[in-house]
């Protein structure tokens, strides 16, 4: 088993937390995993990106040219990264903040999920990253939504523990939406 995913969006959308949660879930599943985030001055610029590689073999490069899945959480990310996924790859777009009409690729699987709107409906726009992970779990088949939700406790800080059920709901909302379409 090998799967790599690239997540990109605005700073504040919880991109890194999503990547870390995915990495934690993969580790708890017994897989090898690397999580490489953007950092430092790059983040001050307002963009956040990360790469997660999961495998049951030893992982070579934590840097990936052509991730099997790109999750574009905003318009700039869609424009910039839709080309990077290989033919047959998966592009998951936050259609609340990115225009699906701008998808140029015909040779990949594209899914629009109104992550921000679904999150707001759940009560907090900041849950869009969890909606994204739910959709990712449903569409990539690389890891289950239960496995992702199971890792929440490890990555959510002590004082926010009470928000775990809400995050779980957001993950399931992503699954539901991605499965329904």
């Amino acid at each position: 088993m090998y799967y790599d995913v690239f997540i990109s969006g605005f700073g504040g959308q919880g991109i890194l937390l999503a990547g870390q949660l995915l990495a934690e879930a993969a580790m708890e599943k017994g897989l090898n995993v690397t999580f490489f985030p953007s950092y430092g001055v790059e983040m001050r610029g307002g963009t956040a990106r990360c790469t997660v590689v999961m495998s049951d073999n030893e992982i070579g490069s934590p840097i990936v040219d052509n991730p099997r899945c790109v999750i574009a959480m905003n318009q700039p990310s869609l424009v910039r990264y839709q080309e990077s996924t290989p033919p047959g790859g998966l592009l998951i777009v936050n259609s609340s903040l990115a225009n699906l009409d701008d998808v140029k690729r015909q040779d990949i699987e594209v899914h629009g999920v109104p992550m921000s709107e679904l999150a707001v409906e759940l009560g907090n726009a900041r849950l869009s990253n969890m909606v994204a992970l739910g959709a990712f779990a449903r569409l990539s088949g690389s890891i289950s939504s239960d496995e992702i939700a199971g890792a929440l406790e490890a990555v959510i800080s002590e004082r926010n523990r009470s928000l775990i059920p809400l995050n779980e709901r957001a993950i399931m909302e992503g699954v539901r939406y991605a499965g329904g379409k």
Partner: peptide
């Protein structure tokens, strides 16, 4: 290097 410093692995 920066990749090793910033990345996470188990």
């Amino acid at each position: 290097d920066a990749v090793l410093g910033q990345m996470q692995e188990p």
